[in-house]
Design a protein around this nucleic acid. Structure first.
Lengths: 129, 129
DNA sequence: GGTTAATTACGAACGTCTTCGTTGACATTA
DNA sequence: TAATGTCAACGAAGACGTTCGTAATTAACC
């Protein structure tokens, strides 16, 4: 039996993960005070969410201190890729390329960003060759 | 007051929308029989979902015949872009470029697909100039 | 030690999502 | 016309998501 893959984080869970990715290991209060900026959220709400996320395996908890310290279990990159793969499957026939093209034509990106994307393409094609 | 934008379709709703985009206007039975291939779903389940989707404004209903005919209210492209914009906001700091780069490095695409993306980049930069 | 403050744990409330059974309306046909 | 089949409507059940009040626990401080 290998590790079962983590479930897709919900909206509220994702906003907590964003805080953890930015701050690193944090207590409930840390997260709540950070989160309150954009979205007023009560202390116990954040606590409950972090408890659920621990059960789901989305975060890990260090109980060494009285104030438990939580941290994201999966990196931001890994989670982003999983969300993209998931969306590709649900709405783009499983094709990452279709998804990319739609994303590019949908929103305008800056010239610098387009250049960065082009360089990334170069790197990918370089590897494949 | 302008039209309020439609809500993000749920998973089950999206799978129905995919059928409508492929088939065009369809009755409940049409959708259900198509859907049953990948995912066994009862008739009343599909009906209920389509009724909810009508309330939400995700589909439109033609009641001229006894068997009502449903159709997607928004094109596949438009919905895809909205889903991407939504995901960009929730997980990519609102940056479509970041999303694209992650999608490209996350999954390998074929050479043909990469070429198509490159051409799309050319077209975008051509317009912006 | 007793009081106060911070923290975790528990569970309830409320909404949404998904599924489906049942009912009543309508049509088809025997 | 009676029996049969198809359909929309309704409601309910169970799972999940989100929020928060309250209780229990622990630490800190006088």
């Amino acid at each position: 039996m290998t590790e079962r893959q983590p479930p897709r984080p919900t909206d509220a869970e994702l906003s907590i993960l964003r805080v953890l990715w930015r701050r690193g290991p944090s207590t409930v209060r840390d997260v709540q005070e950070d989160l309150i900026q954009e979205n007023p959220t009560g202390y116990t709400t954040v606590l409950k969410l972090l408890q659920i996320m621990t059960e789901k395996g989305l975060v890990v908890r260090d109980e060494a201190q009285r104030a438990h310290v939580y941290d994201a279990r999966y990196s931001e990159q890994k989670t982003q890729r999983q969300l993209l793969a998931d969306l590709a499957n649900r709405a783009f026939d499983g094709s990452a390329a279709k998804l990319v093209m739609q994303a590019l034509s949908g929103r305008k990106s800056s010239a610098a960003e387009l250049t960065a994307i082009r360089e990334l393409l170069d790197r990918i094609e370089g590897e494949t060759k």
